[in-house]
Computed example of a mutant assay.
Amino acid sequence: MKETKTISLEEMKKDPSTLTREMLQDISKPYEEAKKAFKEASEAYKADVEDKKERIRNKRDHMAATLEELAAESERLAEEITDHIAEGDDDKAEQAEMRMDEITSEMYSLEKKIIQFQTVGVKGDSALFKAASDAYNDMIRKETQISNMASDISKAAEAWAKHYKDIQEKAFTIAYGPVAGSGYNTAGRRTKEDDIMVSITEQHDGLINVDGHQAGTDRDAKIRYVRGSLRGLEGTEAAAKRMEGVTNE
């Protein structure tokens, strides 16, 4: 990947030619690539979960089909036993009863397994989860770097408002995120990826318990947790879990 030249805020203030649309595109590339990498990693984890679920469903369906076959055989044996007894053939009746007992035992075992497969939780591969988590953290780092760089560009462009008004607006958008209508909102940035990370973290590690938090909505609190910030989460189970993980590292 072509390395982006670093330009200081002072250079931007002295030389307006350093402020270009191409520069804005260049500083966005690392984040876009990191976002793509996170999407691929998170989809790989979710695909692994779905693949495991599918194998379990197939196994359960196979056992259900076997159960139906055994039930049909048991019903047929019941009729045979009745016929053997009526004909006075005790040996055949006894053999049929023994087979019927075996079938009953097999059916009980299958029914129990089917119930277990219906209630068991499926966890994705830990290595794939780690890859998604690492990709997410890298994406957040790139996001912060780009935001800081774009903020510097915005400040320089404001000084050249007449000549570079278009550049200033685009840099401001990259730094703070667009909102429908007028104004900008930092809280609305990258929420899709945050929500995905919250989802797969809870799928892998269990519910992120933020009861008692002071971080806005529960969604805001969980996003803070996956981003590595415990501000407003003090005293919650999620914060205690995160602190325990840091202590054990």
Rank of each mutant, 00 (worst) to 15 (best):
E3A: 10
T4W: 11
I7H: 02
M12V: 03
K13V: 10
S17K: 08
M23G: 10
K35I: 13
F38Q: 12
E43A: 14
A47V: 03
A47T: 10
V49C: 10
K53C: 09
N58Y: 01
A64I: 14
E69V: 09
E73Y: 07
E75R: 00
L77W: 09
A78K: 15
E80M: 02
I81F: 11
D83P: 01
I85C: 07
D89H: 01
K92H: 06
A96N: 03
R99M: 10
D101H: 02
E102P: 02
M107H: 02
E111N: 05
I115F: 04
T119A: 01
D125A: 12
F129K: 07
A132I: 13
M139R: 00
K142N: 09
N148G: 13
M149I: 15
A150V: 04
I153N: 09
I153R: 03
A156F: 11
E158D: 08
W160Q: 03
K165S: 15
Y176T: 05
N185L: 04
T191P: 10
K192I: 09
D194M: 02
E202A: 05
E202I: 01
N209L: 04
T217S: 12
T217W: 11
D218Q: 11
R219Y: 07
R219A: 07
R224K: 13
Y225K: 03
V226N: 06
V226Y: 07
E237T: 12
E237I: 08
R242P: 05
G245T: 11
